[in-house]
Amino acid sequence: MIYKLVPIADWARVAAEQEVPPSALDRQDGFIHLSAQDQIVETARRHYAGATGLVLLAVDAERLGGDLRWEPSRGGALFPHLYGSLPVEAVVGVHELPADVPVADAVADLLG
């Protein structure tokens, strides 16, 4: 399982578009940033501190096919990068994060 944090407003658009819209950073870098379970808390801490109105998407990596690549990133760790769209069929879990808990703490609590 791999993970993606997205604003609730973006997740709400998925029903009409049948794919998760890429973030501004995703568009800038040319791929969709995802995180493994052991990476998502630090991703939340670094990129979403103070953010509210987010959902954590659990994504079945096997449903992404050859567009998913594991590439070096932070500290040389391999991160999942998706070179294509993130289809709604690959999302197997959606967890709304509470607004009154720091994002990294909420993610850590969810994933135990």
Rank of each mutant, 00 (worst) to 15 (best):
Leu25Ala: 12
Trp11Pro: 08
Gly65Trp: 12
Leu57His: 04
Arg45Ala: 13
Ser85Cys: 04
Thr43Ser: 15
Ala99Asn: 15
Arg27Cys: 07
Glu71Met: 14
Asp38Tyr: 11
Arg46Asp: 14
Leu34Phe: 08
Gln37Thr: 09
Asp29Glu: 12
Asp10Cys: 05
Tyr48Gly: 05
Arg46Trp: 09
Val88Tyr: 00
Arg27Asn: 06
Gln37Asn: 08
Arg45His: 12
Leu56Phe: 03
Asp109Pro: 00
Gly66Gln: 14
Gly53Gln: 06
Trp70Asn: 12
Arg46Asn: 15
Ala36Thr: 13
Arg46Gln: 15
Arg45Gln: 13
Arg27Tyr: 00
Arg46Ser: 13
Val14Asp: 04
Pro102Met: 01
Leu34Cys: 11
Gly30His: 04
Ser73Leu: 12
Asp100Pro: 01
Ser85Pro: 07
Leu54Gln: 08
Arg13Cys: 05
Val6Trp: 00
Lys4Thr: 11
Tyr48Trp: 15
Leu25Gln: 11
Val55Trp: 02
Pro72His: 10
Arg69Asn: 10
Asp100Lys: 03
Pro21Leu: 05
Gly84Trp: 03
His33Ile: 05
Ala16Arg: 14
Arg74Val: 13
Trp70Ile: 05
Val92Trp: 00
Val88Lys: 08
Ala12Leu: 11
Gly76Leu: 06
Glu42His: 10
Ala51Leu: 06
Leu110Phe: 01
Thr43Ala: 14
Gly65Ala: 10
Pro7Val: 08
Val55Met: 07
Arg27Met: 11
Val94Arg: 02
Gly112Thr: 02
Gly112Asn: 07
Leu68Phe: 04
Glu71His: 07
Asp26Tyr: 04
Pro7Glu: 15
Leu54Tyr: 06
Val91Thr: 03
Lys4Asp: 12
Phe79Arg: 13
Asp105Phe: 00
Pro102Asn: 02
Ala77Met: 12
Ala24Trp: 03
Ala104His: 15
Glu42Pro: 05
Val94Cys: 05
Leu25Thr: 08
